[in-house]
């Protein structure tokens, strides 16, 4: 996110403190004085990781510090989830299985690890899905469950709430 703050001591610390308050993690701070910039404010870009659903709280906290938020560039797919599929994955059109998730618009297959022991043996795959939110993950998994049912694949999900 790109912040605009007063070019005064203590301002940067004040702007960053709320990040840890909401349980976030600061990845990078890009702080550049622009010689062409004549106003008494400076622009700072921060890259951070936030727990699901905390962005709004953070935005309010930062504004309360008197810091102006110029732009928020949100990485859209933040929730990651891995499931394992077992069965005849290639013969049941693996790329179609992946497409069914990718075409949702709110989730996509980010990683696929496939193990094929022998031609007539069932293969196993770990599929990592990224999605925009927990709800979207729930929907994506519901789609995958349905696909697994249709294609007679066994699906092994993590023991977490994405019902």
């Amino acid at each position: 996110m790109k912040l605009e703050m007063k070019d005064a001591p203590g301002q940067l610390v004040a702007a960053l403190k709320p990040v840890s308050l909401v349980g976030g993690n600061i990845v990078a701070v890009i702080h550049q004085h622009d010689p062409q910039h004549l106003s008494d404010t400076i622009d700072v870009q921060i890259v951070l990781e936030l727990p699901e659903g905390k962005l709004e709280t953070l935005v309010n906290l930062i504004r309360n510090e008197g810091v102006n938020i110029l732009r928020i560039g949100e990485e859209r797919l933040l929730v990651r989830h891995s499931v394992i599929l077992i069965g005849h994955l290639m013969h049941t059109d693996l790329s179609d299985t992946v497409d069914r998730i990718d075409t949702t618009g709110f989730a996509e297959v980010a990683e696929l690890h496939l193990v094929m022991p022998a031609i007539d043996q069932p293969s196993s795959a770990k599929i990592t899905i990224k999605s925009t939110s927990d709800e979207a993950m729930g929907e994506a998994l519901a789609i995958l469950r349905e696909v697994a049912r249709q294609k007679k694949l066994m699906i092994i999900e993590p023991l977490e709430d994405h019902q």
Partner: peptide, 21 residues
């Protein structure tokens, strides 16, 4: 869903992320 069609590969895949089944 039982465990009778579970593969060793599936357990190995889980193991790769410090998990098991």
């Amino acid at each position: 869903t039982g465990i009778d069609s579970l593969t060793l590969a599936a357990l190995e895949l889980a193991d790769g992320q410090e998990c098991t089944i």
